[in-house]
């Protein structure tokens, strides 16, 4: 019975069948993200041949790699965006997408994330934020909420979580939005916008990891985590009127920026043009 539903799933055509089933745990939010991404691709009628998907290391890095059927580059820990930068320069007409986790992109890879946003290179980053290192067994991440327990903060987290979307918006990205896996429709819309916008785009998805995070923080069931997301989500318009204390422990959701800024590869090619013009090399 389950098999039948599976085969009828219309978006299966976007998946690399020989790599299935995925290695994601039951209840993981990664599936929702993969589904939302496939939906966005489908709704935009993008040809997967025009996509290159890059990822780093960790559970969320596996969401699209190797399961999404496109050119997929599974790289080293934290460096996906730097690899993607090279891909985008080489293939400016393709959509280059990075799907990876919070530890990967914002901890060890935080610098590449910042600098890609500063350059405003036309890469779409879907950052799956589950507050934890899932693959290695539930260690503290830079996104782990203050006070939460992990295997490397067994007595509670004393560090403040990095506000990824806020930081990347101020670093210069063209498009930044944050949703949770409980906001699937908004998420799909944002991914669509991110894929369309010219410049660096980040969609941060707050996602559940019941096995490594939930279990240690009194939310064993995925549904409990989704309820937690819904209960604590605050739309950005409302959040702007709230104080820092009121926002403690809340998830601000919505679009943080959506703006036009000069894009890196365009500027690079413009520069090449000008230089060639200047030295009389055009049309050689």
């Amino acid at each position: 019975m389950a098999k039948e539903i599976y085969s009828k799933y219309p978006l299966i055509k976007y998946l690399r069948k020989e790599a299935l089933p995925t290695a994601l745990c039951p209840g993981c939010g990664g599936g929702t993200v993969l589904n939302a991404f496939a939906n966005a691709v489908d709704q935009l009628k993008l040809d997967p041949k025009d996509l290159v998907v890059v990822s780093g290391i960790g559970c969320s890095a596996w969401i699209a790699s190797p399961y999404f059927l496109a050119d997929t580059l599974h790289t080293t820990h934290g460096r996906a965006i730097a690899f993607a930068t090279g891909v985008k320069v080489g293939l400016p007409d393709k959509k280059v997408v990075v799907i990876s986790g919070d530890g990967d992109l914002a901890s060890i890879g935080g610098n590449h994330l910042l600098h890609a946003a500063r350059r405003n290179i036309d890469i779409t980053v879907i950052l799956v934020n589950n507050f934890i290192y899932g693959m290695t067994g539930g260690q503290l991440a830079p996104t782990t909420p203050f006070g939460a327990k992990t295997t490397t903060s067994p007595y509670r987290n004393i560090e403040h979580p990095l506000k990824i979307s806020e930081t990347i918006a101020s670093a210069g990205a063209s498009y930044v939005a944050r949703w949770t896996t409980a906001h699937v429709y908004q998420l799909i819309e944002s991914i669509k916008k991110a894929l369309t916008v010219k410049g660096f785009s980040l969609v941060e998805v707050i996602s559940q990891c019941p096995v490594q995070y939930g279990r240690r923080n009194r939310m064993k069931e995925p549904a409990e985590m989704l309820r937690w997301f819904l209960k604590n989500s605050v739309p950005i318009s409302k959040a702007r009127k709230m104080s820092e204390e009121e926002l403690e422990g809340k998830f601000v959701i919505g679009e943080f920026v959506n703006r036009e800024r000069p894009e890196f590869v365009t500027e690079l090619n413009k520069l090449i043009d000008e230089v060639q013009e200047h030295f009389g090399l055009k049309g050689e």
Partner: peptide, 17 residues
């Protein structure tokens, strides 16, 4: 790039194109 790690990473990406 922002550092040497990013430099070699970008190179690998570009080589695959």
């Amino acid at each position: 790039m922002e550092d040497e790690i990013g430099s070699i990473a970008a190179m690998v990406g570009a080589s695959w194109t």
